Amino acid sequence: MDVFMKGLSKAKEGVVAAAEKTKQGVAEAAGKTKEGVLYVGSKTKEGVVHGVATVAEKTKEQVTNVGGAVVTGVTAVAQKTVEGAGSIAAATGFVKKDQLGKNEEGAPQEGILEDMPVDPDNEAYEMPSEEGYQDYEPEA
Rank of each mutant, 00 (worst) to 15 (best):
D121G: 11
D115E: 12
V71R: 09
K23Y: 15
K45I: 14
S9Y: 15
A91I: 05
Q99A: 13
P108S: 08
M127V: 08
G36F: 09
V74M: 15
F94V: 03
E126L: 05
G41D: 00
I88C: 05
V66E: 01
V40S: 00
A107W: 09
E83V: 10
E130S: 04
E131C: 12
V16F: 13
K60W: 12
K10T: 05
V48G: 01
M5K: 10
S42T: 05
L38M: 13
K23F: 07
E105W: 02
E35R: 10
G132E: 13
K10H: 03
H50V: 03
G86S: 12
D121P: 09
L113E: 13
P138F: 11
M5P: 00
S9D: 03
K58S: 06
K10D: 01
V3S: 04
V52E: 00
A78C: 07
V40Q: 00
A140F: 08
A90V: 11
Q99F: 10
A27L: 13
D119V: 05
L8H: 00
G132R: 13
H50C: 10
M127D: 05
V37K: 01
V16N: 04
G7Y: 07
K6L: 07
E114I: 12
G106K: 07
V70H: 01
K43F: 14
A30E: 00
G31T: 07
L38S: 03
K43W: 14
D115T: 10
A90W: 14
I112W: 09
T92F: 06
D135H: 09
T92C: 14
T44D: 00
G84N: 12
E83N: 08
A69M: 04
V82M: 11
K21C: 03
A140V: 11
E114D: 15
D119P: 11
P138L: 05
K102E: 15
A140P: 07
F94S: 05
V74H: 01
K58P: 01
A124W: 12
V70W: 15
Y39K: 06
E114T: 03
D135E: 13
G132Y: 13
G68H: 12
I112Q: 05
T22S: 06
D115W: 06
K58D: 01
E57P: 02
V63K: 01
E105N: 13
A78R: 07
